[in-house]
């Protein structure tokens, strides 16, 4: 049995029929081909699969695609506008907030939600916003700096 769903992803409307048990991340990666969202642990521990659903950061590996029916989703691929990097993306690049890049999409999306709600977070608030995300390559300091860079740029 397949269930019809309608979702808006990065501003585009998609209508698909999906298996009720299909994970949201599988829908994004395999049905829509949006491979910028990664799967790191399958159990919502690592945060690599973080996306925005109706403005809230969610872990797409533990949501079903059908739960996103009618929702507006934002993924990594939707951040840059007309080829211009979003300040958070620029921050991760400038401050070397990444190494292997696998956790980066989740980190960026978690930070995006934070800055939407609080454009001038202090360091504590930044760390709180990222506590659901693991990075194994860095020691997180540059990731925090990347978010600070973005906040500064947004407020300019």
């Amino acid at each position: 049995m397949e269930i019809p769903i309608k979702v808006t992803v990065n501003g585009e409307v998609y209508e698909h029929r999906v298996e009720p048990r299909m994970l949201l991340v599988t829908f994004l990666r395999e049905v829509l081909g949006l491979t910028g969202t990664h799967v790191g642990c399958d159990t919502s521990s690592c945060g690599a699969c973080t996306i925005l659903m109706d403005g809230k950061a969610v872990k797409s590996c533990t949501l079903l695609a059908v739960q996103a029916d009618g929702a507006e989703l934002l993924t990594m691929e939707g951040l840059a506008r007309n080829g211009e990097l979003h300040p958070i993306q620029e921050g991760f690049w400038r401050e070397h907030g990444l190494q292997c890049g696998f956790c980066t999409p989740g980190m960026i999306m978690a930070a995006y939600q934070l800055l939407e709600e609080n454009a001038s977070p202090d360091e504590k608030e930044i760390r709180r916003a990222l506590e659901g995300n693991y990075c194994r390559c860095t020691g997180y300091h540059n990731i925090v700096k990347s978010v600070q860079y973005a906040a500064k740029k947004i407020n300019r």
């Binding site: 395999e30 949006l34 910028g36 993924t75 691929e77 951040l79 993306q89 620029e90 991760f92 980066t104």
Partner: peptide, 23 residues
């Protein structure tokens, strides 16, 4: 000097094994 990989990473465009188009 920053890696060209870094730009791809921040855009979600860098590809790992299972991100390659499915044959």
């Amino acid at each position: 000097m920053k890696s060209t990989d870094a730009i791809l990473h921040t855009r979600g465009e860098s590809r790992y094994v299972d991100d390659l188009p499915q044959p």
